[in-house]
Design a protein around this nucleic acid. Sequence first.
DNA 1: AGCACGCCGACT
DNA 2: GTCGGCGTGCTC
Length: 803
Amino acid sequence: MRTASVIVDLPTRQTNQPFTYLIPDDLLDFNLLGHRVRVPFGKRNLMGYVVAVGQSERSDFQLKKIESIIDEKPVLNSEMLKLSEWLSNYVFSYRVQVIQTILPNAFKPKYLKGLKIVDQVPEKIKENIFLNNQEIEFLPKNYTSEQIKVINSLIRQGKIVQTTTIQKKNKGKKVKVLSNNLNDNDIATNLNKKSLSDSQKKLLIFLSGHRDGFFQVKELAEILDISKSTILTAEKKSWLKKSEVRMTRNPVKKIAVTKTNAVELNSDQKKVFNSVESAITKNENKTFLLEGITGSGKTEVYLQLIEKTIAQGKTALLLVPEIALTPQMIRLVKSRFLDSVALLHSGLSDGERLDQWEEIRDGKIKIVIGTRSAVFSPLTNIGLIIMDEEHETNYKQEGNPRYHARDIALWRAKYHQAVTLLGSATPSLESRARAQKGIFKLLTMNHRAVSGAKLPDVSIVDMREVWQKEHADNDFSPTLLKKIEERKENHEQTILLLNRRGFSSFVMCRNCGYVPRCPNCNLSLTLHMDSHSLKCHYCGYEEAIPKKCPVCGSPQIRYVGTGTEKIETKLNSLVNGIRVARLDQDTTKRKGSLEKILRDFGKGNYDVLLGTQMVAKGLDFPDVTLVGVINADIGLNLPDFRSGEKTFQLLTQVAGRSGRAGKTGEVIIQTFNPDNYAIKLAADQNYEGFYKTEMSIRHIADYSPYYYTIQVGIDGPDQFPASRAIDEVAEFIKPKLAKETIVLGPTPKAIAKLRNRYYFQIILKYKKDPNIESTLSELQTVFGEKLPKDIYLSIDRDPVSFI
DNA sequence: AGCACGCCGACT
DNA sequence: GTCGGCGTGCTC
Ligand SMILES: [Zn+2]
Ligand SMILES: [Zn+2]
């Protein structure tokens, strides 16, 4: 018997395995591998993915037949089938969930429930419920309980049946287009007619110049500045021919650019280019780590390597942490490769994403640039995968499946015998350590690309002294303030970083010390003057600012700590006429607002760009000659072994925004911990020094990269059952793991309560433990089975954050 | 996820 | 006796 193994579209523990189906006669000659199919499953029809085809002689029970295929072409090629199998095991996720992540959202089907009459039913029912149809769509919430009762009894009697239909969605809009239907003679004769209106004349002249184009009515009306009715009349007269095309939505086309060409590389860049290029040419599965200081011209190297790859008939993938923050890079890529590049990011609609996906699969597009999920784009024959800013934690998905784009990139590069290029000014310790061991090849660029441009001069300002000499609570040291004023006078620009949004970090009663907290998370609420409210930054809870203390009634409420809002207000009052743009989550909620702020700042409409970590990433503004860090200590004391690394990266990256175009840049770092190693080494722009120091700290504490880490979590609506469950998890796994594996906990998570759920964790640290994967997958299947429904188990391999 | 099966309390 | 509550388990 010819059979197919099908993963059904049901992300549950019990259905996380292939089910075997018979292949119907009409599909026997068809290769079903990777196809979406409709299959009967229990009482209903589900969608599924064929992950294998073969022979089976099972006689223990009657196999069911595949009902039909959904698409003409398979949606998963053999690479993606293998990848999904590996990844689901690697990150402990259901296979369907991984497949859904690999595929564009538009492939998620909609199940429509319906009712169908199969026998005699009372006339009244036929009229009232079926509205005299044989089959209707059925949504229980649209019917009264009486009606549901009647329906249920008729189903029991076998007179009507429930049906499910699987609906495909988003196959792209069909649009009406018009094209020229006249030959030269026709046009000439029509143009000679006396009765011709100006609009008609315009249209005819246009048609004579665009013999082969297809245009939408609206488009034509706009181009020629004539009314729609003129065009419709012309259609009636058969001047124009009507047809329908499927619109492929291509968001890159909307970015208008002029073509640019490769720029001559400097000697640093040339060296890097040559090493990587030779590996691409030789089809070596090699990974390079490019450690290039900020402004060293990594992008130009990327572009020329992509060009080379394409010239060899292969495809290329460029991953960036966040599209919105790298508009310059996108523009550059687009200007170099024009329409042959696909842009994939979270801002696309399902339909846009599907269109791009199909063009990539069909080989029409050979260059893909995109964020995390673009790593799954269905390119074939990949020659080069570039991951820019490889240290960014954005590349790790929070929530299932918890994958890291770097892991996928390396897997795919191996599959394709391709080259991976990881680039950063501040590589993750993990990658840098691998380069040390020779697993990755280390390449460096230590000079800024623009001739004459140097790394900025960095100085640390000890805020303890400032508070002693001036008055405490000063957010601006006199040094920083003076320099901001100077920049304003000289028509240069300043970037200010403060990694905390809102007005103040929390509010406190001066009399009794009461601090308002979130009822869902028990975390202190942040004051927001924009919205005149207190907000929880973790769940979004919001309440009014108290006029007096709810505990003791005192009207003396103190605002503690400083956020971006307060800095904006202060700066406006301290420097006369200064124009400040604020860039944080609160000012960029609206679609397009981020781009607008950056554009306006680039045009010189502002003196200062003030914001959270967003201002540290990738921005490239030539007039910025001063970067100020208001408070470098935020994040330094978080309960996370990577807090030093994160601080170093943030400071180094933001410092790199200064003096990129030849004008000397300056950086002022304000801190209460001027002796902290991460802050000092960031001030020295000394990545290698930081790497060595941090590695010794990690070594002593047995942390990554010396050990692998896995976080096992439990969360539930009540504290006690959840804490008991995590204890049981520990009991379950401990005896199965290798003796050398270190088990930390169980402990409550750093944020112990979030959105009314209680969180607990166990951290596993291991170098080599052959039992780890089997133990954890057993934990999911065996232990997970008896876990109460409202308690969730999570497994996070190589977590990037412990907060 | 649905849906059936099954075992208890409440009602025509 | 029957209806319906939702706890448990299965779906190729
Ligand atoms: Zn009080
Ligand atoms: Zn909250």
